[in-house]
Each structure stands twice: as C-alpha cells, then as structure tokens.
Design a protein around this nucleic acid. Structure first.
Lengths: 108, 108
DNA sequence: TGACTATTTCGCATTTATGCGAAACGTTGC
DNA sequence: GCAACGTTTCGCATAAATGCGAAATAGTCA
C-alpha cells in the first residue's frame, strides 16, 4: 500500500520549493527579484543579513529551482525562475484580505 | 531605511504558509485534501506517521491558514482553505516537466 | 604576476523542527 | 456517571536550519 518511489521523490522536490520559500529573508529576496534581476551585493543591502547568510539563502533557492544565477564578470545576478511564485503570493494576500475565492486572480 | 513593521508582518505570515507546506508529510496531506475533506483517522493511514505527528502537522497547516477544521461528533474533518495551493503545485509540476512559461496554466 | 573585488564555503554555537509514546481532553452512548 | 473512541498536548531525544566570522575561491585590472 505504500506509494511509488517516483511519487515520493516528486513530492520531496515540491516540498523543497515550499521550504525554500518558507523563510522571511528568502521570501524577501524572491519578492525583490520578482521586479527584476539583482546582484548579490544589492540583495545583501536589502535583507539586512551578512554575506554568508545571503549567499546560502540564495543557494537554497537555486537548489530548489526557484532562482537562476548568471555570472557576469565579477558579479553574480539572480533572477526568478518560477514566475508563478509571484502569482501565488498575490493570491495569498488576496485570501488574507478576505476576498472571496471567485474574485481572486491567482495567475496573471 | 528599514521596512515598515506591517510589511515585515505580512511577509512572515506568507512565509508561514510556505513553511507549513515545506514538509513532505504536510504536502501529502494537502494533496489528499485537494480532492476533498478527510478526517484525521484517514490521514493517519495515508501518511504513515503516528497520531501525534499527524495531529501536529495538521495544527501547523491550520495555524498558517492552509486548512480549516470542522468537528462533527467524535471526528474532526479537515479541508483545504486555500484552493490556489493546488493551482500552484500544478504549476510547479509543469515547470519541472520543462513546459514553457506561456503554456503553463497556473490557475484554474 | 599581484593586488583587489565579489561571492561562496567552512566550522561553530544556538535555535527550531520532528517523531514517538504516554497522558490528557472532549464527545458519545450505555 | 462511566467506559470507549477519536484527537490533541506533553516531555523527551534526535536531527536540521540559521547566522556569524574567517578562510577559500574566482574573476578583473594594473
């Protein structure tokens, strides 16, 4: 009666996406990147953590497939790889404000 | 230059939703509830954990606003309070399969 | 090459999450 | 009231995440 291994693996991958987004600092980063790509130095200024902490947060998000990185010269630029994340957070905000389900636009 | 307290609070609430979903057992529960409400006893059979562990997972999901509970007699039934969760996981699966962004239907 | 900048990795201490069994709680029916 | 059932809470041990500073890595320019 146990599930298939593939099903379990697939769920772990999805859970990794949620886990990656389940930290205020990482969510902050993702919100920022929803507006466009940023280099690590900019993100460090925004989130108010040290370089090492920000770097590991970015690594977590990248490993989960939420972000993509692009090395250009000395700097590394990160961008959002999953646009539906923003749609989903918008939906959460709508739900929190008490808007009825039918009205919510969860995806652009 | 720090953010407003309201903005930080809002992000923590959203992060709590992601954190709640960021565990394979809880994601399993949510997937099951996407098909309809279930009582705790059914969920215990499905996820393969003890009663206490399942109960606390349900409490985490409820505290984050992902689930709602309904006590009927001796039993407690849980149901999904955020339908867009299912839309989002569907979008993640589409992304993982490599479908182009334009084709993904993230919301029903 | 060698100094300089941007970023990541490492080692550590602290906190938080997880799972289990036992016990407590609330509801139902005798 | 009391016993039975479904569910939650408690206490504990183990595992994982978090943040920091120092050190390591990589790319650029003189």
């Amino acid at each position: 009666m146990s599930e298939s291994a593939a099903s379990i693996k697939s769920r772990k991958q999805r859970a990794a996406v949620f886990k990656a987004l389940g930290h205020p600092a990482r969510l902050r980063i993702v919100e920022e990147l929803a507006a466009g790509e940023r280099c690590v130095c900019e993100l460090v200024d925004m989130v108010g953590l040290g370089w090492s902490a920000v770097s590991r947060h970015l690594a977590v998000l990248k490993a989960a497939g939420v972000l993509e990185d692009d090395k250009r010269g000395v700097q590394v630029f990160y961008q959002l790889a999953l646009p539906c994340v923003k749609s989903f957070t918008d939906c959460l905000d709508a739900a929190r404000k008490g808007e009825p389900v039918e009205v919510r636009r969860c995806c652009a």
